[in-house]
């Protein structure tokens, strides 16, 4: 628990400092996306299968990304890059499509209009996540299974 309380640059694979905040925000977003897609799918999945399936997919990806940020091993580090990259791609693609062709996404997803319904957090978060991952690579030797 209290192996090294110095919050500075200890080259350990434990998530420290502002990275914890990132994980917390990811957790909240994962919860928000899961809650929304739960409601959408329970209430009227057939109304907009594409948008709602996408919501569910986004929710799962946020959950996996949150776990990947917590687990600092080489494998999870790669999963973190993949899921966060997917989020950035998703928010840019769906955000653009929802503006260019609104008919395609009449029902809101987390990523509609670049995540405007979520204070643009879905747009900003992957960028912060990638910046953080790039700054804190996992050393293969020190990684714990």
């Amino acid at each position: 628990m209290t192996d090294s309380q110095t919050d500075t640059t200890v080259p350990s694979n434990r998530v420290s400092g502002i990275g914890r905040l990132l994980i917390a925000v990811y957790g909240v977003l994962a919860l928000a996306a899961t809650g929304r897609s739960f409601v959408q799918i329970v209430r009227a999945f057939s109304e907009a299968p594409l948008a709602y399936a996408l919501s569910a997919l986004a929710a799962v990806v946020y959950i996996v990304a949150t776990i990947a940020l917590v687990k600092r091993t080489a494998l999870w580090y790669r999963i973190a890059w993949v899921t966060i990259g997917f989020e950035l791609f998703g928010v840019l693609l769906v955000g653009t499509l929802s503006l260019v062709d609104p008919a395609l996404f009449q029902h809101a997803t987390v990523w509609s209009v670049y995540g405007s319904g979520y204070l643009f957090i879905p747009l900003v978060l992957p960028v912060l996540g990638m910046w953080w991952l790039a700054r804190h690579p996992v050393s293969p030797i020190g990684s714990r299974a």
Partner: peptide, 20 residues
Amino acid sequence: WALVERSRWSTVILGVTCLS
């Protein structure tokens, strides 16, 4: 979280939670 990790970031996380 704040009980387990007694760091400044836990305080920030408390705040982010309240705002959420």
